[in-house]
Design a binder for these strands. Structure first.
Lengths: 346, 346
DNA sequence: GGGCATAGTTGAAACGTTTCAATTCCTGGG
DNA sequence: CCCAGGAATTGAAACGTTTCAACTATGCCC
């Protein structure tokens, strides 16, 4: 029965022979109630299987106890390496505090902040979690302008002040370079994303820092910028392999596992053995990464931690509690597998 | 501002110089209103940026316009091949009708139907979408017993009467067998799931039907039941390879891409070439499948269609409209790639 | 010119809570 | 035995809508 005849506080009150106020006080422990009355009310509520209406409660309290989250839908071969664990950890963290996650789709056309506006104005949500933010992100801008609580997984413009949690992308690629240097590589290339990707620029920066720290020069030809796809990764690797032998990289850091796979496939096509002839490192640690041939060395993002953290911060924010840290960076973890090579290069 | 000072219908009424009832009638077009008044109200609403409170509306209408969905969280190397497209298509379909999707986590312990009960009793949702149902599914049982609207992606006990959409798993594996037979294979094995998986039993059944239809005998040793993991798939393939030459299968159908990868890896380890020496077919078409070596022949599930369909049915159900079809089966699509072999076997 | 239907509008109730302010009930001290 | 004062309880308002029932014009017919 679709809650048409759900039991209300009124019925509990009648059954316990008290007023509805008393029932409310007992259930919320928000006023001193005689023990005997308390017991009677509790018994009545239990017998009737009473649960207070979230709707009525929300209306009264003027908050929905709901958090909005929307993610970018991507073509099926690009996919979202993080949705499942991220959403799950958010849902868990939220529920522990009596909140729920409302997911909504980002329409392909129109203002990206439209759905956010609608949810906010109709009072359906008390705050938002954003993910995959970027420079000049219109959603971030909109929420900041309207002073609505939100926390982002990812950064935007440095000068915009808003709470976020992000993976320390630069640290990740820096680690990757260090790892490769430790294996004896000196000519290390990077297959990077286009300039408009903020995350991509952090990852690229980490590569550059890693090279600099190791005192290695960077041949401009080693930095290939291309889009996020297997085909692009494959092509980029082809470009690198076409360099003259003394400039040809022996290792390559990529922005994603998908691109790493492209690179690996290019190596196979060129008759080379990935992990032996050329080392490849990915980013994301997609579920399959460990089962690929060769198993992929890659950077695992602490997605579940980000999810829990981001919700925790949002709850604090919505309750008006102070946020100890508004800008959190969590380090990724380098998963060393065979695509980066089992042995140091002589 | 967290909606503390959101504009209400009262303010619109005052600004337009009419009663709140009139405003409501204008906005919902639920009563005849003089054109001039109508214009005044509309103008006032627009000027104030008024949007009716979803909470108040829901309370009054006694429905939340929200659909609950929860999925099983899986270990990170098993993952959920369908969550992203499924959730996205559901969200889209729901929003087109003014509904939203509330996601919640399935706690590891305790009654599986507990969170469903809570959401239902507190009136937070008007209906549920279930996925990954199984035989004797306690959630299905609970919702049936309490006569609460839901639609499942997946089936349960044959004798339980409830609306569902499912992929025609048997048709999928049948297609796979046909395809392999067409390539010239006669000794075809299957790496299947344990008996407690309903989906697994449909997929196994399809294999058996396919073999029967082709007039091929099934050696009992060709049916290996094992759990859903790469390691298990690898082991199972090992078992099959250990059969004497004249009983050794030349092709194998698996229950999932993950197991197919295990099988492929076992072939490599045995010095065999998957797709040439032994054909392998997966199930799911995970995003990486096409980029594997060899690219994986597999069955793609029409996940987005299922999502749209399931929501459409649930909406009908909740509105009390008749459901033309209560049991829908959607065929998967065989994606032929190289792991099943480029050439017919002589 | 009176009655009457009808278009247009409004007041108020209701949805199910929480909580303020007021009331009743005790208990104990003088 | 009375009264103060705290403990326990209650009535009613409020949250922001929708919608029923009632009311007021307005125009039309006889």
């Amino acid at each position: 029965m679709p809650r048409g005849n759900a039991v209300t506080i009124r019925e509990v009150a009648r059954r316990a022979g008290v007023s509805i106020a008393t029932v409310s006080y007992v259930l919320n422990e928000s006023a001193p109630i005689r023990e005997e009355t308390r017991a009677r009310v509790l018994a009545a509520a239990a017998e009737l299987g009473y649960r207070p209406s979230a709707l009525a409660r929300s209306l009264r309290a003027r908050q929905s106890h709901t958090i909005g989250y929307s993610w970018h839908h991507v073509p099926r071969d690009h996919w979202h390496p993080i949705l499942d664990p991220f959403l799950y950890s958010m849902a868990q963290a939220a529920e522990a505090e009596g909140y729920h996650i409302l997911t909504f789709a980002q329409p392909a056309d129109g203002n990206p902040w439209r759905p956010y506006q609608e949810l906010m104005l109709t009072g359906r949500v008390d705050g938002f979690i954003l993910s995959e933010t970027n420079r000049d992100d219109p959603r971030v801008r909109y929420l900041l302008d309207h002073d609505f609580p939100f926390v982002a997984f990812g950064r935007a413009n440095e000068e915009w002040d808003f709470p976020y949690v992000d993976v320390d992308n630069a640290a990740g690629t820096r680690m990757a370079v260090e790892h490769l240097v430790g294996l004896g590589h000196r000519r290390i290339a990077v297959i990077a994303w286009p300039e408009d990707s903020l995350t991509g620029s952090y990852r690229l920066q980490g590569y550059l820092e890693g090279m600099a720290a190791a005192g290695l020069p960077v041949d401009p030809a080693w930095v290939v910028r291309t889009e996020h796809s297997e085909a692009a990764g494959r092509q980029a690797m082809g470009l690198l392999l076409a360099l003259p032998p003394d400039r040809r990289p022996t290792a390559v850091v990529t922005m994603s596992d998908l691109m790493a796979i492209g690179a690996i496939n290019a190596l196979y096509e060129a008759g080379l053995q990935p992990g032996r002839d050329v080392s490849v490192v990915g980013f994301d640690d997609v579920p399959m990464a460990q089962y690929l041939r060769p198993p992929l060395t890659t950077l695992r993002q602490p997605v579940a931690e980000v999810g829990a953290r981001v919700v925790e911060m949002l709850l604090k924010l919505m309750r008006g509690e102070p946020l100890p840290e508004r800008r959190v960076l969590l380090p990724p973890r380098l998963m060393v597998r065979e695509s980066s090579g089992p042995h140091p290069i002589p």
